[in-house]
């Protein structure tokens, strides 16, 4: 595969055909924020935080870098007033659900998001789908899934499956940016199959090695 050269934040970046802009940036050590991306999982394009400005043949467009394929001679700007404002508002929308999630709080500082801008509805889940997709794509157990649609969409464990599969796994807990996955699981356990625990619940620390948490290191402008 030939290398493709593109420009990200003024830097010439080499990438392989078929890579996404996010992958090319990460490889070059350029940080782009994301909540729903995980290297082991198929790109999802749900959180939209990785949106960047792309200039190609004189056209400027806004695309999500986790899905946008690299192309020769495109110019990518990972920050601009418009990109920053998109991230600011998206984070504000998510803070309405999980006002204290550390990852969101950090991003809020970076982008100047006001955690009280929108009406609170502390559901804690931001529906990034990491738990759902990890359980499906990596573990192939489908113990947790999305339910419903639109503004009432939610994730939930399926008791019949969770009962059999989750004891030994619980790997999704560490992926969760808000620790809702663990709470949802424990609730399912308490309601659907209480008192059947054989092994203690794993703490996030046990699983820290698998965590997707990436330290926020903003790129100098």
């Amino acid at each position: 595969m030939t290398d493709i050269v593109l420009n990200i934040d003024g830097k010439e970046v080499k990438a392989k055909a078929g890579m996404t802009v996010l992958e090319a940036a990460q490889q070059a050590g350029i940080y782009i924020p994301t909540l729903c991306h995980h290297e082991k999982l198929e790109a999802f394009g749900g959180c939209r935080l990785c949106m960047v400005e792309v200039e190609s043949r004189g056209w400027t467009s806004y695309v999500v870098s986790c899905l946008y394929p690299v192309a020769k001679d495109i110019v990518v700007r990972t920050r601009s007033p418009k990109v920053d404002n998109i991230r600011k508002v998206l984070i504000e929308e998510l803070l309405a659900h999980a006002p204290d999630a550390p990852e969101l709080v950090k991003m809020a500082e970076e982008y100047g998001s006001d955690r009280n801008r929108f009406a609170r509805e502390a559901s804690f889940c931001v529906l990034c789908g990491l738990c759902v997709r990890y359980c499906d794509e990596v573990k192939q157990k489908n113990a947790v899934s999305f339910f419903d649609n639109g503004s009432v969409r939610q994730i939930a464990f399926v008791p019949e499956v969770a009962k059999k599969e989750c004891w030994e796994c619980q790997e999704c807990f560490a992926l969760c940016p808000t620790s809702y996955a663990q709470a949802a699981y424990l609730l399912t356990e308490a309601l659907a199959f209480p008192g059947q625990r054989k092994t203690p619940a794993k703490s996030a620390k046990d699983l820290a090695l698998k965590s997707r948490m990436i330290p926020i290191t903003p790129v100098a402008m």
Binding site: D136, N142, A143, V144, S145, F146, F147, V158, E160, V161
Partner: peptide, 8 residues
């Protein structure tokens, strides 16, 4: 099909 997907 996984049961969770049917439910979804």
């Amino acid at each position: 099909v996984p049961f969770a997907q049917v439910m979804q």
